[in-house]
Design a protein around this nucleic acid. Structure first.
Lengths: 293, 293
DNA sequence: TCCCATTCATACCTTTTCGGTATCATGATC
DNA sequence: GATCATGATACCGAAAAGGTATGAATGGGA
């Protein structure tokens, strides 16, 4: 069977038109080269070289084969290099699902850094509602997800990458609305709007703990899944809420945001499927160290 | 060194994702395949397959390599096929130089037939004045030439492919101009315009022999190189001429053409350089048998 | 839970192929 | 006509490929 070595030999020979010198360039002696070339010709059933005792020249078929062989060798080397690059995560695909908050906080700089370091990776970013993100990652629809730190999930790895403080959202007609800052104490008996325990347990937990640090149990009036929804409900004057600072960036009419004394923080986490071997993911993880609370 | 065999093995394995079945399809047993694949991975420095005792799956790098390897194998096979086709003269180039007469006689059908049979050959047709065609062919500027049959030339092969009758061209005021047909006898003492002996010896010879068949020596007044020129000189009433029938196709004002009794013929010949190994030329020759006088 | 079947890897042997050395055949050059 | 350069051939040892036998790991069924 014809192989790539014979093509390499042939191309070198075609470039020198001299068996001896070609053999030298190929780091072998002349007889094996002669044999490989005539073997190639025999297997092709095509004479590629005209040999005189003085010169070796290419036949027409040889000229044709030379062009093609060069292209094949280039494609061959390219394939090997591409495999190495793919293995290093320099090419390929990386899909990241994220919740809206990430777009306001960690995602932009992370995406910029990653794309700068790995410009040939096809990065797909897609916003997803938080509660389906875990199953999307587990089902390999995404290589990674960015969401509020979930509890431990079987088959899922988690790494906190950013801690965002919470602030207080109140209706603009609320007594606290005129203040700049509030404390845990101020929230006693205030009807709270919180995230449901199953969709963002850490956010929920942070709120509850903050209340407990004020020495009372939170009075929860409403549960919603999205922070966005929560703030809208605050605007409707159905309660107050502790929401991530980044919510301030959005313009909500009828809502005032207050800073909190000893503000609790909520972790944004990078999550990925255990055993996901995508090298591009490996590189993403390498450039996003865990941050401590 | 990685070779094409390992790529073939890998592609087959990637298509079956099963070492045993892939080996079967490759007409070998499983252990050598396992070894070749791990050898390939080792030489690339890249893991291409994830093996469990149940399934074999492609890594990301393996997926990348699979695509590239398929392209390489296709290019490889293409190169081999192209070489065979080039060797059979089905691809490549064929350059043909021809004199004007050929364009009125043999060339069109010949070119059509050839192109129909070998559509992938890049045929280059170029008109040349006859007296330089021989040296052009000898200098390999053309693979073949079509011209009035020259005498034997060292390094040149010749094959008559068409015999064209001569006719008589006279000025429209000439006494013979009213007739439809003339004989050798009628030309006695008529001043003849002929081609020079070096540019078209067979044409010249045909004229001289025709006169001798009438029992007299030709009286040559003028020599020119191109038949076109000759007819123009006839139009200027400087003499009469025996010219190829195909000259009738051209509209010359002031010239009448007469058929000749026992009209002599002149051979159009295909000429090519001795030892020209262009396979496309071989095919041209194969489809243009020599014709007898 | 234990056993078996499946699957890939490894060990060892045989065959094939490859490259090296020595030498031959051919044809151009002096 | 002797010589030199070039490619082909013959033969040998080394490397690599494939085959058989067998081992290790693991998932599924009794």
């Amino acid at each position: 069977m014809i192989d790539i070595r014979q093509m390499r030999y042939f191309v070198t020979l075609a470039e020198t038109l001299h068996f001896g010198r070609a053999a030298e360039r190929l780091h072998l002696t002349q007889p094996p080269l002669s044999r490989q070339i005539s073997g190639l010709e025999k297997e092709l059933g095509v004479k590629l070289m005209d040999r005189s005792s003085r010169h070796a020249t290419l036949t027409r078929a040889g000229q044709s084969f030379l062009e093609d062989a060069r292209a094949v060798l280039a494609a061959f080397d390219q394939a090997c290099n591409n495999a190495k690059r793919a293995d290093r995560g320099e090419t390929g695909e990386l899909s990241i699902g994220f919740m809206m908050h990430a777009a306001h906080t960690v995602l932009p700089s992370l995406a910029r850094r990653y794309l700068a370091a790995y410009p040939d990776v096809d990065v797909k970013l897609r916003e997803v509602v938080p509660n389906v993100l875990i199953e999307d990652v587990l089902a390999a629809r995404f290589d990674a997800g960015i969401m509020f730190s979930p509890g431990p999930v079987r088959g899922l790895e988690t790494r906190p990458i950013f801690h965002e403080k919470l602030c207080l959202a109140v209706h603009c007609g609320h007594p606290l609305a005129t203040r700049k800052i509030a404390s845990a104490h101020d929230l006693e008996d205030q009807p709270l709007i919180v995230t449901s325990a199953d969709s963002a347990p850490t956010a929920r937990k942070a709120v509850e703990e903050y209340c407990r640090s004020g020495g009372y149990a939170p009075s929860i009036r409403l549960e919603a899944q999205l922070q966005n929804t929560i703030v809208n409900l605050v605007a409707e004057n159905l309660g107050v809420a502790l929401v991530p600072d980044s919510m301030r960036k959005l313009a909500f009419s009828g809502v005032s945001f207050l800073s909190l004394k000893n503000a609790p923080a909520i972790a944004h986490a990078l999550v990925w499927r255990t055993g996901n071997l995508n090298p591009a993911l490996r590189n993403l993880l390498a450039m996003t160290p865990a941050v401590k609370a």
